[in-house]
């Protein structure tokens, strides 16, 4: 079938090859990765009571975007998916960064905790797109309730510290 192989050849030459080259070139523009580090002296773990169970859930379901302890998976190094991942991490940290906890006002900390409880309750978080890539971050009803109770109790404690100071 000479015509068939001719079409195939043209397809490779004019479609697949250019696509491959374009994909290769894209890899020079993967984007700028937000810094990741494990030592964070201002992290919420340093000042707020967190059970090991809650801590495990925070790290598994929240910390990739809401702390400096981001784990970059292998596919995050590939453009164009890297663009989405980088953007999510930027926006996530801007919204709430558990590693910058001590640098926030007490008023903001109360709000962050209340909004954390609310987001989890409404199942807005963990982000649905994140869950598709990280099935291990999917929370059971019990785990969800555990996080909500922790966030609400911590908000109460953050406010109460004032009562104690005043007395």
């Amino acid at each position: 079938m000479p015509t068939g192989s001719l079409v195939m050849g043209k397809l490779i030459k004019f479609v697949l090859l250019p696509l491959l080259v374009a994909f290769g070139i894209l890899q020079f523009f993967r984007g700028e990765y937000p810094e990741a580090r494990l030592e964070n002296p201002a992290d919420i773990h340093q000042s707020v009571e967190i059970s090991s169970e809650v801590s495990g859930l925070l790290r598994a379901a929240c910390y990739d975007c809401h702390s400096m302890e981001t784990n970059y998976p292998w596919y995050s190094k590939i453009a164009p998916i890297s663009w989405t991942i980088i953007q999510h991490i930027r926006e996530g940290r801007e919204e709430l960064n558990f590693s910058e906890w001590e640098n926030m006002s007490r008023r903001s900390r109360v709000k962050m905790l209340k909004e954390t409880a609310e987001e989890i309750e409404e199942q807005g978080m963990p982000h649905p797109q994140y869950l598709r890539a990280h099935p291990e971050a999917r929370l059971t009803d019990v785990q969800r309730q555990l996080l909500i109770d922790w966030a609400n109790q911590s908000a109460r404690n953050t406010v109460k510290r004032a009562d104690k100071d005043e007395d």
Binding site: R107, V110, K111, K114, E115, A155, R156, T158, V159
Partner: peptide, 8 residues
């Protein structure tokens, strides 16, 4: 705490 969060 809810009120403080709203005010913030």
């Amino acid at each position: 705490e809810e009120l403080v969060a709203k005010l913030d």
